[in-house]
């Protein structure tokens, strides 16, 4: 079973990215709205910059000038 005591739901923490939570999952936001994801894993935004909050949209990514060139 996906979320039984024998097989607890896994949450993965990454300091540089979203929190990964095994789905399905409901997120209760600060304003009381509830967002639901049926995906096998949900990526929950922790940088607060996402335009589809509470879900990650990769807005946490580092930004560079093209000339500074990430290689």
């Amino acid at each position: 079973m996906a979320n039984s005591p024998e097989r607890p739901r896994r949450v993965t923490i990454d300091p540089d990215g979203p929190m990964l939570v095994e789905g399905p999952v409901e997120v209760v936001c600060a304003d009381g709205t509830v967002a639901t994801s049926r995906r096998f894993t949900a990526a929950i935004c922790t940088c607060r910059r996402s335009r589809i909050y509470p879900w990650c949209d990769t807005s946490h990514r580092r930004r560079t000038d093209r000339d500074q060139g990430a290689t």
């Binding site: 990454d14 990215g17 979203p18 990964l20 995906r39 894993t41 949900a42 990526a43 589809i52 879900w55 990650c56 949209d57 990769t58």
Partner: peptide, 11 residues
């Protein structure tokens, strides 16, 4: 694909 691939790329 914004939402799905933000998960997929992590996994």
């Amino acid at each position: 694909h914004v939402a799905a691939d933000a998960v997929h790329e992590q996994v």
